[in-house]
Design a protein around this nucleic acid. Sequence first.
DNA 1: CAGAGAACGAGACCGAGTCTCACTCTTGTC
DNA 2: GACAAGAGTGAGACTCGGTCTCGTTCTCTG
Lengths: 155, 155
Amino acid sequence: MLATMLADTATDWAAYARAVLVRAGHHRGAARERLIDLLARQNCALSAIEIEDALRRGRRGQRPVGRASIYRTLELLHAHDLVIRLDVGDGVARYEPAGPTSEHHHHHLLCDHCGRLVPFEDAALERSIEKLSDRLGFRTTDHEVTLRGDCPDCR
Amino acid sequence: MLATMLADTATDWAAYARAVLVRAGHHRGAARERLIDLLARQNCALSAIEIEDALRRGRRGQRPVGRASIYRTLELLHAHDLVIRLDVGDGVARYEPAGPTSEHHHHHLLCDHCGRLVPFEDAALERSIEKLSDRLGFRTTDHEVTLRGDCPDCR
DNA sequence: CAGAGAACGAGACCGAGTCTCACTCTTGTC
DNA sequence: GACAAGAGTGAGACTCGGTCTCGTTCTCTG
Ligand SMILES: [Zn+2]
Ligand SMILES: [Zn+2]
Ligand SMILES: [Zn+2]
Ligand SMILES: [Zn+2]
């Protein structure tokens, strides 16, 4: 039982995120709960608009989630490093779960042709970025790499 | 005379940009000319709004440059690789001159503390990104790397 | 259960960027 | 030079992510 739950990264991340927020002294509200559930369920980056669309229509008579709550919660999650904020330059911010118990750190290829966002991870790239920071004398807390080109489907 | 002109990268880029556009069959209009002059004069990235502010108040009875012309021209310059479009995630696009006669391809560090944008270039990074694309089987046309951290002044 | 204040939702608001359309200017042709 | 043809232009309406406000609702503690 417990083992299965812990093996489930989605449940795991949601639980972790809730724990972090409660420990930081936050109450639990409906909007937050639903947003965390939604994010935990998804495995690729979601834009704020997509989140809004998914949560606005509250199913089964649930009270719909307001836009302000969505942005507030995303900001809160981001402040606690529970979420990665991804900017690909099309004017919409995307968010995906992050933290100890979620997927690994990764980057993206943005397809020029179909607009799809393809995640990838590469240890060699990470190593060379780390070396780069040292070489330049920057103390970096984060980095973002975005490739543009044709995704496998569009070649 | 000519030597001094050619040594002046700003003049150089402006001339190059104009040549590219004319060769591509474009007419020369006042807005384009003024925008190219402005970009050539600047040496760091400029946001569209900053450009608009600089060109709206047409000095010496010049007709003011309209917003549409600014965005159109930036798009055109970008399509001809005469300008680099830089997105640091604050919701404003920044542009800087690019091409054979301007600065080299480079990337940026965004300071978490003072918000400054620090350009850097690094051959080793470029090499490892090239290798990365091959390894992943992507055909990439462009890439963007942004580091976040503390700039030299803020350490 | 009651009070304090955190969290919430509706909707007004903001602002970077897009679109439209009537007008102006550049350019090639005679 | 005069003259189309059509590229280029500018005012301003518009779009739409995202922010702010404010009165209401809920969560937690005692
Ligand atoms: Zn594609
Ligand atoms: Zn990385
Ligand atoms: Zn700084
Ligand atoms: Zn590069």
